[in-house]
Structures are given as C-alpha cells and as structure tokens.
Design a protein around this nucleic acid. Structure first.
Lengths: 175, 175
DNA sequence: TATTGTTATACTCTATAACTATA
DNA sequence: TATAGTTATAGAGTATAACAATA
C-alpha cells in the first residue's frame, strides 16, 4: 500500500529528495483516506459538510455563543463565506443568530440543542475511526508519528512566509 | 506545534485512544499545511484547481491519450464531473478530445504541448515543497513515517468495507 | 442490456466587491 | 476611519438523473 517513487526519480528531478516525495505522497493519501472514512461515518448523522460540522464542534467546544468573525478566523474563511455557512446551519435549525449585547455590529452564534446532540454523536465516531485506523501502529510508533508530523507542520508554517526559490528543472525522461 | 488532546479525553470518550486521536489530528493538519504550500507555489503557474492539475499529471504520466472514464476512475469522481473538468481544461487549451478509433462511445483525452510545459513547471515545485518540508526529519524518520502511513492507509482500506460499530457514547464534561 | 459520455439541474464552498450599520 | 456582517455575483467542484449513442 505504501506509495513509492519510480527508480529514475533522482535523474528526473535533480535537487528533489525521493524519500521526502514518498513521505509527502503517503501523508496526503493517508489523510485523504482517513477523512473519507470520517465522512462515511459522519454523513448519516446530519448530512452536513465538513465545514459545517467544524462550526458546530467549535461552538460546542467554546461552551458559549461566539461572534461570527471569531468562528471565521478559526476556520480560515472570510466573513462572507461564514455568513453563507451560518445561513445553511440556521436553516437546518443547528444555530441561532443572537444580537450582541454590547456591540451592535456583531452577532453571537449560538448552538442549539439538536446540534449538541449531533456533536455528541459525531465526536465519538471520529475518535473511533482514528482509534481503529491507528491500531496498526505500536503506541511508540503513534507517538513518533505525531511528533514528527508536528515538526513538519512547524516547518511548513515557517516556509509559508518565504519566497519560494525556483527549483531545478525537470529532466523529462525519454520513453 | 504538535496537536495534543486535553487531559480529560479518556473520560470524555471511553473506548477511544488518545494517542490515535492525536496522530489523526496531526496527520490531517500536516497534510492540509502541505497542500496549502503546494497550492501557493503551483497556483501562479496556470491558476488551475487541484483536480485539474491532477488530470494533467495523469495524462502526462500515461504518455498517451486516455479515455475519459479511465481518468475519472483514478480521480475518484463521476464521469459527469469529469465532463465538467474536461470542459474547463479544453477551454483553457490544455487538453483535446479525440474520437476513439475503435469504440465510438468513447473519447480519448489528449494533453497539449502548453499543458506539458505546465506539468514540467509544476512537478519540480511540488517536489521542492516536499523536500523542504521534510528536511526537518532524519532520513530514517522519513522512512519510518512513510512506512507507517502506508500501513495506516492499508488499514483504512480494509475498514472501508466494514459496517462501523456504534462507539461508546460521549460523556459530556460538566463545565 | 450495459457502457460511455453529455446535459440539465442543484447544492456547497469559496472568494471579491459593494454596501449598511455601528464603533 | 475601522470593524462586523450581509448581499450580490461569480466560479469551481461535486452529485444525481435523464438522455443519446454505441457496443
């Protein structure tokens, strides 16, 4: 199941590291497979999108109503997109918009009881999927994986502010 | 940077494994961060979507025109979605639809020279992002990561055909 | 009958820009 | 002026269903 690059990778992409390409490919593939499994288990509960479930989880976790722009920041979407998301959730009866008592420009988004029930059903499903998927690793392997992925993510966070350098060009193999 | 679950996780989600939840969270977060970095580097080249770049990479890798449904299967989308994707790519001049010489129900999708240049630019960018991101790991760590993720993916592939069992319910913490 | 592909339709997510109300 | 939120508009991706052409 492990994805490997072909034998001529080093010649085709000078300057690129084959083991990094393999790690990246398996990272993305494993994450996709996991998210697909989560979707399969979670979708029957309320038929919501990933973003919508995230909004409910954020509100449930906060334990109190939150202003729209606070949720938007955590979700990394614009406030305009957030409005649209909240429209969907409000239409389904999962959130309410309340006036903010102090700042009348703001609204407070409140989670409803039916949505709390959805969250109560969904979180165990997600954690069960994780538990089953990673049961094939030893506890020490899980810890290594978690720590290594944290380091990679920190590196990516640093890279994000750098101007990417032009890589060495591909040497297209002759077939 | 590493994502960790809170202290009461085990009480809140009986039956779920905390180290698996942490591994899953860091897996998804790292994959998202990597894909975001890829998007940042790749987008200026042709402004295409992830799916569209994938179609071009598939056609370039195949070395010959492919029927539409073959690409759709590899991309895990319906043939209807594939039609829409091909419309976009054809409008941009990156693919051509050719009649299939043997089976007149089929079409062959051919990559154009401008699209080959796009692929030649994009692949080194993607591999450079991977090389830079995973440079924070030792070669042996990269190999461990790759192998472990391959095992997790194989497990997820097995799980996919199983009927998920109902997990133990959440014990909502009292705030 | 089954397969391949397209079209019609619809929905979600996302973004930018223009706008209102409020601070 | 700056901030919070909405609306208008647009585009992409995805899906299902109905359909035509072909095998």
């Amino acid at each position: 199941m492990t994805i490997r690059v072909h034998a001529g990778f080093g010649d085709e992409f000078p300057g690129a590291d084959a083991s990094s390409a393999e790690a990246a490919a398996n990272l993305v593939a494993a994450a996709n497979a996991f998210l697909e499994e989560v979707h399969r288990r979670r979708h029957p509960v309320a038929g919501l999108s990933h973003s919508a479930y995230q909004v409910l989880a954020i509100l449930d976790g906060a334990g109190q109503p939150l202003p729209s722009h606070v949720i938007a920041e955590r979700l990394l979407v614009t406030t305009a997109s957030m409005s649209s998301l909240l429209d969907t959730l409000e239409r389904r009866g999962f959130v309410r918009r309340l006036p903010h008592p102090e700042d009348r420009r703001k609204i407070l988004v409140e989670i409803t009881d039916p949505a709390r029930e959805v969250v109560d059903q969904v979180l165990p499903l997600v954690h069960a999927a994780a538990t089953e998927a990673f049961a094939v690793l030893e506890p020490s392997e899980r810890e290594l994986l978690t720590e290594a992925l944290g380091r990679v993510r920190a590196r990516l966070s640093d890279i994000r502010s750098e101007e990417p350098r032009a890589p060495e060009p591909r040497r297209r193999p002759v077939p």
